[in-house]
């Protein structure tokens, strides 16, 4: 995937700082359009939109991504979805459609939820307040099944299924549409999708992993993995585990200078300092084996503007980051080829 490093921004509410109530502007479309355009000015590979089904105070991330898509041109758009309570059939066509709306820039981050609160919002299952080992293992399996169904449904139309053959009166060649016939412990899905195969064939699937169990899920079903190393040794260890995936290390970023980040607790490394110091760290970690970084701006838009306005030029000066987009799709930015269709006759 080239010699340079890859950069993404994780967009969360008004930032990842544990501050008080966020700015209500985050419920307006222009807030998101401005942020993603800023990230695109910085030539980032993609942005992720945090989301969940609990007490999140967030707009639906798939819809936010689609709202932004027509007003941007290059940057990848990766919403977050919870597999546990939702329908893989709906989500598959939603991400396929996002790929059409964005002309090949969709991805999706998938995760399970063991939250008893989330479960009460749906009322179909109940989870204990403290999940047991068996439930956690099951949720991983269910998430793996879910991604399997997403992928099968994306492939359920061959690329040339729509023929519009006036002579025979046929709009499609039905031999190029396929039942996916998935049968699992949590759901069965017949298919085909109602939506044709998306422009990228399969939009990249991302997983955030903190544990061997999720590393395993990522190896089985993901294209992109986000990990949370805290030093070079942890970067090397994670990279050894996650070879073959596009591996991004998550870092919470305070570039504002004098902000006190001492009280910030995060699963990810918390960086405070200057853009130049952050560039040092990214270059070192990249050399240690990670492909790129998903930066979590602590304060929006300030820390994102610092990333695009200070960090990116610093990395470019060092020859460590692109100076223009070389592709128009998310797969293109990541150096992932368009996959063959599993159902197509060779």
């Amino acid at each position: 995937m080239g010699t340079g490093l890859h950069l993404a921004a994780a967009l969360e509410g008004t930032g990842w700082h544990p501050g008080g109530p966020g700015d209500p502007a985050r419920f307006t479309p222009d807030y998101w359009v401005d942020l993603v355009r800023e990230a695109e000015r910085g030539l980032l590979d993609f942005v992720t939109f945090e989301d969940g089904l609990g007490r999140t105070g967030r707009l639906d991330s798939v819809l936010v991504a689609s709202r932004v898509a027509p007003l941007t041109t290059h940057i990848g758009l990766v919403p977050s979805v919870v597999a546990t309570f939702t329908e893989p059939f709906h989500l598959s066509k939603a991400i396929a459609t996002l790929d059409y709306v964005s002309a090949g820039r969709a991805g999706v981050r998938v995760r399970g939820s063991f939250s008893a609160e989330d479960a009460r919002h749906f009322g179909r299952r109940s989870f204990p307040d403290v999940p047991g080992e068996e439930l956690l293992a099951d949720l991983v399996e269910e998430t793996a099944d879910y991604v399997e169904v997403l992928r099968r449904l994306w492939d359920s139309w061959e690329d040339d299924a729509e023929i519009r053959d006036v002579a025979t009166g046929r709009f499609i060649d039905r031999d190029k549409l396929h039942y996916v016939d998935f049968r699992g412990r949590w759901f069965s899905v017949k298919g085909p999708s109602i939506t044709p195969r998306p422009p990228q064939g399969a939009p990249p699937v991302a997983v955030l992993s903190h544990s061997p169990r999720i590393h395993d899920l990522a190896r089985r079903q993901a294209d992109i993995v986000f990990s949370t190393p805290h030093d070079v040794a942890e970067v090397r260890a994670a990279a050894a585990e996650l070879g073959g995936l596009r591996h991004f290390a998550d870092i919470v970023v305070f570039l504002g200078g004098d902000r006190d980040a001492a009280d910030v607790t995060s699963d990810a490394h918390v960086f405070t300092g200057t853009a130049s110091e952050l560039a040092d760290l990214l270059v070192a970690w990249h050399a240690a084996g990670v492909d790129g970084f998903r930066l979590r701006p602590a304060v929006l838009p300030d820390d994102l503007v610092a990333i695009t306005g200070e960090l990116v030029p610093e990395l470019q000066r060092r020859g460590a980051f692109r100076t223009e987009y070389g592709a128009t799709t998310l797969r293109g930015h990541l150096g992932l080829p368009r996959p063959a269709n599993r159902y197509a006759a060779v």
């Binding site: 396929a96 709306v101 709009f171």
Partner: peptide, 16 residues
């Protein structure tokens, strides 16, 4: 196969 086949996701198109 005689009519148009295939539709997008409703919410995603409307948001776009």
């Amino acid at each position: 196969d005689l009519d148009v086949v295939g539709r997008p996701d409703t919410f995603t198109v409307l948001a776009g």
